[in-house]
Every structure is written in C-alpha cells, then in structure tokens.
Design a protein around this nucleic acid. Structure first.
Length: 410
RNA sequence: GCGGGUGUAGCUCAGUUGGUUAGAGCGCCAGUUUGUGGUUCUGGAUGCCGUGAGUUCGAAUCUCAUCACUCGCCCCA
C-alpha cells in the first residue's frame, strides 16, 4: 500500500516541535492575560463574504489564496486566512459592541493556498490580539507594547526590529495615492513588471518592492509623511511618543505598507533577519471600517497577528521537558504494588514514567532514556518493611524511604 | 502562479567513468547484566535508491515526466 504524505503545505506537529509551538502559544496566553485580553475562539470557517468584504476584494489573499468551497447547502464557505475579520464578525454577531472597549486575543490555525517555504505553510498558526472601540493613539501604543512583551516573553533569538509607519486616515491616504501615482507614471517604463501591475492594483506596494530598478525610482518618491493631514500627523506623533515613554525601540519606515485594505493610520511589523524573506514575525495596525463593513456600528480597532510557526523556529532552545520519576518493580511479583504507587503519585500530580515490561536492568535503562531524575524501586525486603528504595539517577545515591513518605522525598 | 536546488535506512549523509549481494555514523532492538541505568564491548533488524516511463546487455548513477521538500520572486504571519 502506498504511504500517504500530508497534503502540500501541511505537516504533523509532535515531539519537540509541538513543545516549541506550545511555548509560543503559552507565552501569548500569559501576556495577553496580563494586559487584560480575553480569549476568543471563532470558527475555522466563515461565509466567504466575511473575508471578502473585510479584507478587500482585490487583495491577493482574497483573490487567489483562499480555500473556498461550496458546502452541501450551496453556501460559499472559506477557511479563515486570518483572524481579524472573524473576530470583528463575532463582535457584530454577538452584540459585543455594547460594552466597549473589547479586548480579545486568539490562537489557532489559518489557511492560505500559497507555495510553501520555510516558515510558510498552507495551514499555519497565528496568535493575535484585537482591541476594539478605542480610537485614540493610546490603544495603538498598548497593542504594540503587548506585542513587544509577547516577543520578549517568547525569547526569540536573532535581531528583531520594530518598524512602524502611518498610512493616515482615508483622506490623507487618497491624497498620497494620487501623488504617488502621478510620480510613478513619469517612470512607468522603468518600473519592474510586477510594479507596472501594482500601479493599477496597489501603488503603495511599489514602495517596498525588492527590485533594484524600483528601489531607485522610490528613492525620490513622495513620502507618506508629507501627505498626512493635521489629524493623522498628530495621531502618529502620539503613538511614537507613547512608544518612547515605554522605551520601546522602533524605526519609522515610510515605505512600510500593508497588504490588506482595512488598515488606517498606524501599521507596524516586527522583523527578524533570521528567516530570509519570511522575516515578518508579527504585524498589525489600526483599522477603522472593518466592523462597519461587516454590518456593525462604526467601531475602530487595532490589532496584530503573529506567526506561531515562525516564532517557534526562532526559539533559542527547545523548551525544557519536565523530568519524570520512574517507578520500577523489582520483579513481576511486585507489579501491582508498583502500579499502585505510581498511580497514587500521579493522582498527586507527580509526573511518573513507568515502563510496560522488562527486568530491573531494562527498566532502569528505559528510565534513563526517559530522562527520569529519580527511580523508585518497589519490592524485596524493603517492601516487606513498608519501604521503597529511591535512587537519585543523577548522583547514583539511593536510600530507603517509607511508602507514605515518597512524595516528600521526590 | 514564476525561476533555481535536492529526493538513497527512523535521522544526517557517502556511493568512483553506468557493472552484478547498496554503505557509514547516529538512533532502534537484543545480549554482556534474572536487585540497579548513564560509558564500553558484541550481535541484529531496517531500504521497491521519491514515483512512473525511457535509453542500455545492465540504472541509485543518464533522459523525460510527475510528486514532495527546499531557496528566491509574487504575496504574506
């Protein structure tokens, strides 16, 4: 029979890898809790329209990367490609706008039909937060601070830098787009093929093109910053001041833009130099119209999403595994007594490893392989006296201990 | 969707100009050890050489296709 492989871009998580993923998600649970964010679990699939409306019809994610299918009832269903739209929809569906601000975080799989690479999968995991209903810059600051704490907590190796920019409000953005379009049209001939296309789809994108010919042209392109209106400018300044106050280092990158249509004002990315072109490890920003697009009231939001798989790849070392206590019957005669002792310890919350077979020597070997730090030997004269032998597997020392005292001795 | 690289044991890889029974290290199992592990020592199992076709007397080796992985582009976390 043919051995099956997982479908392209998917993989099985187990062993050390899942420990790394769990370390990342545990960090998220912990940090989000400290900032007062509650967990939200939204469905893994939604009506296609939720994502199409929320993210913008022309974005690449919507137009060519979604896992979309018709269910048996004929509804167009899409596996969620990101978390924000679903969270916004949940807010609307459940009337959560009654009690603002709403602070939520989520952790779970997302799906995009893309060519897989290192740190990029078709089923991948994101951990993100959303803060709804605060339209002042301190919301942006809090979310970025949370992101910063989260990355610190996870303790990833390599250099991670925060880049930040403002896209301004709708008015500023439109002004800027116009100026940019005009500028690039003068150089259309010299733009890369990709950028010629972007000129019509998303001119802002040209700014962070990796093509040399585009970079040269972008040197003298109009700067977003010069097109921010008074309000947008003040907003951005306030955000930066907040970051200064928190001593969070950042780099203003006027060429930083985002792929999804809903972003306004603040956009930011935490980038590592260790993952090649998949260097973005956490990214987010402010969005103003997403909730109303989905049929809710006009509520603003700020949030970010982080790539759990990418962060797991960056961990300095695999998190320490807890070491078990091994319970070893001296011979078959004592197997039930040993089992009872193991079970009692487990009931007390002790991590107990017990081999399923083998003589004493074999069981010690297995205990060693399981990286046990103590072995409890059950049987013989000692057992008749109501005792067991506890051996420290690191030092090799062992002593006789009353069965009742076992949990005190380990 | 586009371009480059790679597919040999569970893992990391070697395999000469095509030549008959395909190798190493690690890991795994067993013995050394029927009241005591980690180090040794000895033995053992494991491969449709990614898959399919072609060239050839003969293919892990050459050609094509296909699938998967990987690196970059697009895009994105």
């Amino acid at each position: 029979m043919k051995a099956y492989q997982p479908a392209r871009g998917t993989r099985d998580l187990y062993g050390d890898e899942i420990l790394a993923q769990k370390f990342v998600t545990d960090g998220m649970h912990h940090v989000a809790h400290c900032y007062g964010y509650g967990e939200i679990i939204t469905p893994i699939f939604e009506f296609t329209e939720v994502f199409a409306r929320g993210m913008g019809e022309v974005t690449d994610v919507v137009s060519k990367e979604m896992y979309t299918f018709n269910d048996r009832g004929g509804e167009s269903i899409t596996l969620r490609p990101e978390g924000t739209a679903g969270a916004a929809r949940a807010l609307v569906s459940n009337g959560l706008a009654q009690d603002l601000p709403l602070k939520v975080y989520y952790i779970g799989p997302m799906f995009r039909y893309e060519r897989p690479q290192k740190g990029r999968y078709r089923q991948f995991y994101q951990a993100g937060v959303e803060l709804f209903g605060v339209d002042t810059p301190n919301a942006d600051v809090e979310v970025i601070a949370l992101a910063n704490s989260f990355l610190k907590k996870v303790g990833v190796k390599g250099k991670i830098t925060l880049e930040i920019n403002s896209l301004g409000d709708v008015e500023s953005r439109e002004e800027y787009k116009k100026a940019l379009l005009e500028y690039f049209k003068g150089y259309e001939e010299n733009l890369s093929e990709d950028s010629k296309r972007r000129l019509h789809t998303n001119p802002l994108r040209i700014l962070d093109s990796k093509e040399e010919c585009d970079k040269v042209i972008c040197e003298n392109a109009p700067k977003m910053n010069d097109y921010l209106n008074e309000f947008s400018k003040n907003f951005f300044d306030e955000v930066l001041k907040g970051l200064d106050a928190l001593e969070i280092e950042y780099k203003v990158n006027s060429k930083l833009v985002r792929g999804l249509d809903y972003y306004r004002h603040t956009v930011f990315e935490f980038i590592t130099d260790e993952l090649g072109s998949q260097g973005t490890v956490l990214a987010g920003g402010r969005y103003d119209d997403l909730v109303s697009e989905l049929g809710g009231p006009k509520i603003t939001g700020v949030g970010f999403a982080s790539g759990v798989d990418r962060l797991a790849l960056l961990l300095k070392e695999t998190p320490n595994k807890q070491r078990p206590v091994a319970v070893i019957p001296l011979n078959d005669e004592y197997k039930y007594q040993a089992l009872k002792i193991a079970d009692d310890l487990r009931a007390e919350g002790v991590f107990v490893d017990m081999a399923f077979n083998g003589n004493v020597g074999k069981r010690f070997k297995k205990a060693n392989k399981a990286n046990a730090f103590k072995a409890i030997v059950v049987g013989g004269d000692e057992f008749d006296r109501g005792n067991v032998v506890i051996k420290d597997l690191d030092s090799g020392n062992q002593k006789e201990v009353s069965i009742k005292e076992i949990s005190k001795e380990i």
